[in-house]
């Protein structure tokens, strides 16, 4: 292992022009790719690539809550499991829940509890699964943003999508969306999740120290970033429900020839494994 203490003094996380290690400015996000409806078996799903993060989210439900003593006769439970794959980090992560992932699962499920119309589904649970395939700082924000798309894809009634982005302090400068190095060697990291329409904050954590002025700045940056992520989430959902239709319209030609060489049957896989 390298001497981290030593590196910290050497490393310049942000240069004089305000450029960060990867060339971003203080308010730039890493490149994001977001796709909805990637899993067939789940009721709703989403896949997100956010810089070096790769996160898969799946939603099941509302379904009968088990064990039964957890059922709430007035509302649905919103349960979340955040899990990191053993290969998601550079040193193999010991599989299974640990202190960190249990905590993240808890705060994410609480964030979603405040937007889902849980009272419409008494005695049920809405289960959210977040699998981190590759981690590069900011996985809880990526997981939460993906899970929010997965929830909407599952048709779960909710007040709004939830968008999330962290901000922090590196080299004394407040920046948005820290990457792995910035997170490890920076001064503070502060993940936040907001309900974009109302500006409500549904998740707020902090690691490190920020003065109250810096915190205000970080919050503004995160909220602004969350709005950008919100637009991507909406895009992903629109794409999911328009692409499939356009594809189908494309592959159904208006009867060009009377004799079809391949037979008029649509290809087997068009109907997917459910057709079996």
């Amino acid at each position: 292992m390298e001497d981290i203490e030593h590196i910290e003094k050497e490393m310049k996380l942000i240069d004089g022009d305000g450029r960060r290690l990867d060339g971003r400015k203080f308010n730039d996000l890493r490149p994001i790719r977001l796709e909805a409806g990637v899993l067939r078996r789940a009721d709703g799903s989403a896949y997100m690539e956010w810089g070096g993060n790769k996160v898969l989210a799946a939603v099941y439900g509302p379904r009968e809550a088990h064990p039964r003593h957890l059922q709430n006769p007035a509302r649905a439970l919103v349960q979340c499991r955040y899990n990191m794959a053993p290969f998601s980090v550079s040193d193999r992560k010991r599989p299974g829940p640990d202190r960190r992932s249990v905590e993240i699962s808890k705060v994410i499920s609480e964030a979603f509890s405040s937007v889902v119309f849980a009272e419409q589904f008494p005695r049920t649970s809405v289960d959210i699964f977040i699998e981190v395939l590759q981690a590069d700082a900011g996985t809880r924000c990526a997981g939460l943003s993906a899970a929010s798309v997965a929830l909407a894809d599952a048709g779960v009634p909710m007040r709004d999508l939830v968008a999330s982005c962290a901000s922090g302090k590196i080299g004394g400068v407040v920046c948005v969306d820290l990457n792995k190095d910035e997170d490890n060697f920076g001064d503070a990291d502060c993940p936040m999740a907001v309900v974009p329409r109302t500006g409500e904050i549904v998740l707020l954590q902090m690691d490190g120290h920020l003065t109250s002025d810096e915190f205000e700045k970080a919050m503004d940056l995160s909220i602004d970033a969350a709005r950008r992520i919100y637009d991507m989430q909406r895009d992903a959902l629109r794409r999911r429900y328009s692409v499939s239709l356009e594809d189908i319209l494309k592959e159904s030609p208006p009867l060009p020839s009377p004799v079809e060489p391949e037979g008029p049957m649509p290809p087997e896989d068009e109907f997917g494994p459910e057709g079996i």
Binding site: G155, V156, P157, D160
Partner: peptide, 25 residues
């Protein structure tokens, strides 16, 4: 506001969203 992903429908001043996915209730 829409509570679900779906298609907006307006009829006699009543706005509803026809869901595109979801469980059976």
């Amino acid at each position: 506001f829409a509570a679900q992903l779906g298609i907006r429908n307006e009829h006699d001043g009543l706005v509803s969203v026809i869901p595109l996915s979801g469980r059976y209730l």
